[in-house]
């Protein structure tokens, strides 16, 4: 009798342990660092040492200094643009994939996702050489006759960041869109045809709305990855391509102001959380069952 009770207790204790661990891992590895940042953002720095006295100074500086808010805003606009470009390029690609039959579909999907396996830095170098003054893009544009001479339009500036981020992040947009397109039952499309809809009408009224959840996930995915990236702007942005990520990075590096960097991180985290929530809200499909 008591043996049974003890084993039951032991079982309950071990299942409790699993539950605690399952919740503890994200708490320790995600929430605790965030909390530490939040705490640090209320400290200040004096002569290179951190002063552990609570102050709102960092936030006041963020909102009043004429540098930070505009860069913050421009970075958000940049990342929204990256998300839009990625969606516009990824949607046709994903759609094309779903029109393929059987093996080809997944073979090509894998091929499109291969860049994800490559080193991030190498990819940036590769894209930089394409975008450069003597790069492939300029040479091609001159060869076709669109440009008279190589242009500096996308060399070490905001445009370069936009293009590079878009190219790097497209695979992240293709996957969710492809999955949502693939989930649309073929009979719905046939039913639409059967009811007299043209191919375009079927696409606009059935396929597109039913794939929007995938588009929303893709957009929030790309946006979050873009806004957190400081390496790409650093490498292809030159001096004019200044993003929030770079400022943030410099606070932990050259400027050596961790509390202020922490305050900037908190601002960034708020934007990221909003983006994820918006993506989640629209990513939920309405009535999924047929």
């Amino acid at each position: 009798m008591s043996a049974v009770v003890t084993t039951q207790l032991a079982e309950r204790r071990s299942s409790l342990l699993v539950t605690v661990l399952a919740f503890a891992a994200p708490v320790i590895f995600v929430l605790v660092p965030l909390a530490i940042f939040l705490v640090y953002s209320f400290f200040s720095v004096d002569q290179g040492t951190i002063v552990y006295a609570p102050t709102l100074g960092n936030y006041v500086r963020f909102f009043t200094d004429p540098i930070f808010l505009p860069v913050f805003w421009n970075t958000i606009v940049l990342c929204v643009s990256v998300a839009v470009i990625c969606i516009l390029l990824a949607y046709p690609a994903a759609y094309f994939l779903t029109t393929l039959r059987g093996r080809w579909r997944y073979a090509l999907l894998m091929l499109l996702l291969v860049p994800l396996l490559m080193s991030y830095v190498i990819k940036i170098y590769a894209i930089r050489s394409i975008l450069g003054l003597n790069g492939f893009l300029n040479k091609a544009l001159v060869a076709i006759g669109i440009l008279q001479q190589p242009s500096t339009l996308f060399v070490f500036n905001m445009n370069a960041i936009l293009l590079t981020l878009s190219l790097l992040l497209i695979p992240f947009a293709i996957l969710p869109i492809f999955l949502s397109l693939e989930r649309i039952p073929q009979t719905l499309l046939r039913a639409s045809d059967d009811l007299g809809a043209s191919g375009l009408q079927t696409f606009l009224r059935i396929t597109l709305p039913l794939s929007l959840p995938g588009v929303a996930s893709a957009a929030s995915f790309v946006f979050v990855l873009a806004i957190g990236d400081f390496l790409t702007p650093q490498m292809v942005g030159g001096t004019s391509g200044f993003t929030f990520g770079r400022i943030l990075y410099s606070q932990f590096g050259t400027a050596y102001n961790w509390p202020f960097g922490a305050a900037l991180s908190v601002a960034l985290a708020i934007v990221v959380i909003c983006a994820i929530l918006i993506g989640e809200r629209f990513g939920r499909s309405r009535g999924t069952s047929v």
Binding site: A191, S192, D193, D194, L195, A197, L210, S285, T288
Partner: peptide, 19 residues
């Protein structure tokens, strides 16, 4: 073509548009 034929189908799994 299918969308020009004056016939309509009731599909086995109904195929109602979920959205």
């Amino acid at each position: 073509p299918i969308n020009k034929r004056p016939f309509n189908t009731v599909f086995q799994d109904y195929a109602l548009f979920p959205h």
